[in-house]
Design a protein around this nucleic acid. Sequence first.
DNA 1: GTGAAAGCGCTAACAC
DNA 2: GTGTTAGCGCTTTCAC
Lengths: 342, 342
Amino acid sequence: MAKTGKTTIYDVAEKAGVSRQTVSRVLNNRQDVSVETRKRVKQVMAELNYQPNAVAQSLSRHKSYLFGVVTAGLKYFGPSRTLSGITNKAEELGYGLLLKELESFNSTNVIPLLHWFKSHQADGIIWAAPEIEDNRKWLTDVFPLIDIPIIFLTMEEQKDVTIVTTDNFSGAKAAVEHLIHSGHKHIGHIAGPLSWWEARQRKGGWETALTEHGLGVNERMWTQGNWSSKSGKIAFLELVEKYPEMDAIFVGNDQMALSVLQSSLEMGKKIPQDLAVIGFDGMPESEFYCPSLSTVYQNQDELGRIAVAELVSQTEENYLENKIVEPKYITIQPELIIRQSS
Amino acid sequence: MAKTGKTTIYDVAEKAGVSRQTVSRVLNNRQDVSVETRKRVKQVMAELNYQPNAVAQSLSRHKSYLFGVVTAGLKYFGPSRTLSGITNKAEELGYGLLLKELESFNSTNVIPLLHWFKSHQADGIIWAAPEIEDNRKWLTDVFPLIDIPIIFLTMEEQKDVTIVTTDNFSGAKAAVEHLIHSGHKHIGHIAGPLSWWEARQRKGGWETALTEHGLGVNERMWTQGNWSSKSGKIAFLELVEKYPEMDAIFVGNDQMALSVLQSSLEMGKKIPQDLAVIGFDGMPESEFYCPSLSTVYQNQDELGRIAVAELVSQTEENYLENKIVEPKYITIQPELIIRQSS
DNA sequence: GTGAAAGCGCTAACAC
DNA sequence: GTGTTAGCGCTTTCAC
């Protein structure tokens, strides 16, 4: 790095004996520059260790090559995986990232965020925070007014909105069907907080699998946690109490399943003989639980990657031809992993 | 949000019947505007739903209120926690974030990154990736040439560089001393990859505690993993083999400790009677392992928060008075949490 | 208190 | 091929 970044296009032009525009042309790889001029300019750039000022470029181009990313609960397993996919793919495709984390999962205070991204001339936005309660309500009012592309992750299909999500319903259904095919008749469920769309989908998959196989569903057969291991423990104790004949359980995520394993052990229940357990998410650690946990693996990294790829394609279309982009609903299938717990 | 973000300071000025400068003054809360002019301008801004263009502001102010953040291994537990602390504190102090993730932990290809941040006029940089192998080597050459403040996380003290880190050495030492005081005489260690500074520090704490208490240390007493649960399992099996009298073990992180618990159970070893186990990190799940895991909790969120606070103070000093800022070495003490495994 | 002019570093539109 | 002239949207001097 040169001592100071103050070298501008002007310095290069002067030293190379050309106009600033010519330098700009070289910078942008335009073809209408003679080979030798280009060579000379490039040489001077190298000598001066010239680095173009991206802010000035953004301002005059009206394009920043920056995406806004909205995340929430970064300290949890899922969101950080997704963000990792986003950063990698963005890097790959030549985009930088402006990052904002919501103060809480169900924050509805989104307008300032949108203004902020817009003010920084983000070319597009990835909304990588989950749908909870009415935290998508703003969409109906605000969405039509936003003039930059937005991709949403993990939410219910909605008209005109591009969404990338894991198919939670099918994943859950497959897990429960596996339990049914293994001969279990009394399959309970610990749901995540039902204010979350994902939690409702997973619970829906559980219900549907049971119903389709002629096994009834009722209130005794499930309880609700808040995704944390601690809440899972409480929910499990409650469930064992009200559904004593339970011989298998589908748990809303791996963390809650972890404490089901711990509590079962403490109660002297053998897994999977007395109680089969399947989780959801496929955390790497779940393979090393006692016993190793069957789970529904969802590729959250890929979720982020797809969102970025989609956004790039939308922005570039948008930019090049100013045409309206077709909204898409993109679904990723999770994968059932059977281990010792089932 | 207004339909288009095209409203500029000029539109406001025109509609309010003042000059653009006056609008700018109102925008920046300058005092040299009459009360009624200010009121009128503000009113017009509201009517027009005017939002200042941050890119233009950055360009003319030479200050962006943006920090660059370099992270690595976002999908792992630690880095995402730290990033969460960074996002929260930055938001609190009015700074936005430009995010980059290294392609690998030990990437040494940092110059383009620094150029990129600089090109986007970041006011400062937080280097939230761990010190591994020679991935800090560039510092000696490049650091003196960088003219924006950088704060590093998790690395060895170094002249002229501001660093915020957990005291891994003391945390490890305290854990091992706890084992010693509990009467254990044969305390093994599974280290993280010793190319990592943190892993070396933790191993150093283990060695020092043993040595200070007159217990010898030799090569039979430790093995090395790569932080993952899978590697922990392999390392543990190897260690049991070569150090059969081991009655306690200090493991480099919680993930590897998890598979120690699993393997011990499979071998029929009782924890903590046959083998006491202590991990490092304090992941929330560790409380729900079988049995619940004793561990050394480090507050990585706080690490990020402190880094941002420090960076803000450095940039603002830097900006206001152009004076050189004293480098600091800031250390956070981790906390020993004793649970059933020890 | 307020306005005019210049400039931040770059690109776009049009000349030549 | 290359240069000239205008901007992008804002802030900063420096007048008045």
